[in-house]
């Protein structure tokens, strides 16, 4: 899933302080699972904002809605009939949802309510960690299923570097060394000899470096 983290309320207050009517829009997908922008978080944020503005003596109406997704036209269309009432929208979806909403409702200011962080997993409730950077050319087949692009701080293709210590990365903060895991995995799979194969120089043009990316599938396109 796409993992996001809540933005400080102060920052959101700053975005919307001049509006009279604000819509907080949650998303029922990834950000619900990582407890940053689902229906619950919409409720908490909206209530907090209402109290803040009331306490400031400002009469700002804050409404709530949570859509199934914000990255598909059909769900974003559900607010077409109401969106014009609002001077500001705070989307608690990931950056994708915020943008798709901005593109669709071009006259309405849309503000991000979360910081979109990465593609990752729920290690345990309250702990999410990165697993993929969408580099566009998956090499997991050669690295025992563990990704050095997203999990090595230097995204080394022929790691580990000299900073791997007792299974941990030199950057600290309890980050495991991806290459230690890769080596452990290759060992477990009886494939440690594969470690000695030099990984070729990466084609980063399939990654962010190549510019905004697009997947077009003529076979399913309408």
């Amino acid at each position: 899933m796409i993992v996001a983290d809540r933005k400080p309320i102060e920052e959101i207050i700053e975005y919307i302080k001049d509006a009279n009517k604000v819509l907080i829009v949650g998303c029922n997908e990834c950000v619900t699972v990582c407890e940053a922008g689902g229906k619950k978080e919409v409720g908490v944020l909206a209530s907090a904002l209402r109290m803040y503005f009331m306490n400031q003596g400002k009469d700002i109406k804050i409404d709530e809605v949570t859509l199934e997704r914000q990255c598909d036209h059909e769900y974003l269309e559900e607010i077409r009939n109401i969106i014009d009432q609002y001077q500001a929208v705070v989307s608690l979806a990931c950056g994708v949802g915020v943008q798709f909403m901005s593109e669709k409702y071009f006259q309405t200011p849309v503000f991000p309510g979360v910081n979109t962080c990465f593609m990752g997993v729920t290690e345990e409730r309250g702990v999410w960690s990165e697993r993929c950077q969408g580099c566009g050319q998956c090499i997991l087949a050669t690295t025992g299923g563990i990704c050095p692009v997203s999990r090595c701080a230097k995204r080394l293709f022929n790691g580990p570097c000299g900073g791997s210590s007792k299974g941990m990365c030199e950057i600290g903060g309890e980050v495991p060394c991806a290459w230690q895991i890769i080596i452990d995995r290759l060992t477990a799979l009886g494939r440690l000899d594969d470690y000695e194969k030099l990984a070729p120089i990466k084609d980063w043009s399939k990654e962010r470096a190549g510019g905004p990316r697009k997947v077009v599938r003529e076979d399913v396109r309408q």
Partner: peptide
Amino acid sequence: NVFDLDSMQLLQ
């Protein structure tokens, strides 16, 4: 940080 190549690829 860049890490376009790694140290082995720089050797190559």
